[in-house]
């Protein structure tokens, strides 16, 4: 199982699209402060909302694409038949696939969450930009690409996976270094200017992405890539409006009750409004949502295993 999970993660990060999505997310979030700095006191909120929206959007694309790549494309191309002709249990195979993609999604979430925290610090003073934070965040991906390019040139190692790993490492180093300097460049205790209240919001979005990943993996056992992407998008949109579509009718109509139970309610995961005006997200909310996500993911994965066990590998 570990071998399959590791291979899944490796194959995912070696896909150029994975690197492109991750870098796009980091750069977009890094550029946000330069664009929206003059917004009459709402700058922090705009950065938070936009940054976390990019976090979610790119994460949705990454998780659904990775699921399609790992399951649908392997079934189409036939690599799965070579693996399942070995002593590999189908249930473990599917769970290993999920675990492998989960590893990559967690790295993505950590990377982008750090980018959002650095980005918010960049504009924490009205009409002023923290160039230490902005500069290091924007330069980090390019440094990673440069090092990966040199490694590829001199040792012929895979550029894409090295760039992905190095981007993660360089952004983390930038985060640590920036944490120790204030806006004038003087040393300070670590993280005084970071908004740590963003962590629960990022954790909730991570749970949302893993829940969506479970849905994508389930769909990928039976459907092609395009239907999987379309259905995941519909589930995301309907789930964001779940309270409106189903919640208000749930006590009256049976179909609304079923819809409210079956479609994940993404509003539980999008609580960034709670940070407005210095507010914070309670850990009890994170814990309750975590249980909801765990139960939902487990149920969906049980369905995925059942579908996969009875599927034919053509």
């Amino acid at each position: 199982m570990i071998a399959i999970a590791w291979l899944t993660a490796l194959e995912t990060v070696r896909q150029p699209i994975c690197l492109i999505l991750t870098t796009s997310a980091v750069l977009f979030i890094g550029v946000l402060p330069l664009v929206v700095n003059y917004t009459f006191g709402e700058t922090g909120k705009v950065i938070r909302d936009s940054g976390l929206a990019v976090f979610l959007l790119m994460g949705v694309l990454l998780s659904t694409y990775a699921a399609c790549l790992s399951i649908t494309r392997e079934m189409k191309s036939g690599t799965i038949s070579a693996v399942l002709s070995k002593p590999v249990n189908r249930t473990l195979f599917l769970l290993a696939k999920f675990a492998g993609i989960t590893g990559i999604i967690l790295l993505y979430c950590l990377l982008v969450a750090v980018a959002v925290i650095m980005s918010e610090r960049t504009v924490s003073e009205l009409y002023e930009i923290d160039f230490y934070s902005a500069g290091s965040l924007l330069v980090a991906p390019f440094v990673a690409y440069l090092i990966a390019g040199l490694i590829n040139y001199f040792s012929d190692r895979n550029f894409v996976s090295n760039a992905f790993a190095l981007q993660f490492i360089v952004v983390m180093l930038a985060f640590v270094w920036t944490g120790f300097v204030d806006r004038t460049g003087a040393m300070q205790a670590f993280g005084l200017l970071y908004n740590w209240k963003l962590i629960p919001a990022a954790m909730l979005l991570t749970m949302a992405l893993l829940t969506l990943l479970a849905i994508a993996v389930t769909l990928a056992t039976r459907l092609d890539a395009v239907p999987t992407l379309v259905i995941c998008s519909v589930v995301l949109m309907v789930g964001l409006l779940s309270d409106y579509f189903f919640g208000r009718h749930a006590e009256t109509w049976w179909w609304a009750e079923i819809g409210y139970a079956v479609i994940p309610n993404w509003q539980h995961f999008w609580v960034v409004d709670g940070l407005t005006g210095g507010g914070e997200i309670q850990w009890s909310v994170v814990w309750a949502t975590g249980r909801y996500a765990l139960l939902y993911t487990t149920g969906v994965l049980c369905l995925a295993v059942s579908l996969f066990n009875f599927s034919e590998i053509k």
Binding site: A3, L7, L10, S77, G78, T79, S81, A82
Partner: peptide
């Protein structure tokens, strides 16, 4: 088992491919 087409992981090297199947 050798499948009809060479059903292999495109982004792995030859050594990584055999290492993966050996681990299975």
């Amino acid at each position: 088992y050798l499948p009809e087409e060479s059903y292999l992981y495109p982004y792995l090297t030859a050594r990584e491919t055999l290492d993966f199947y050996g681990r299975l």
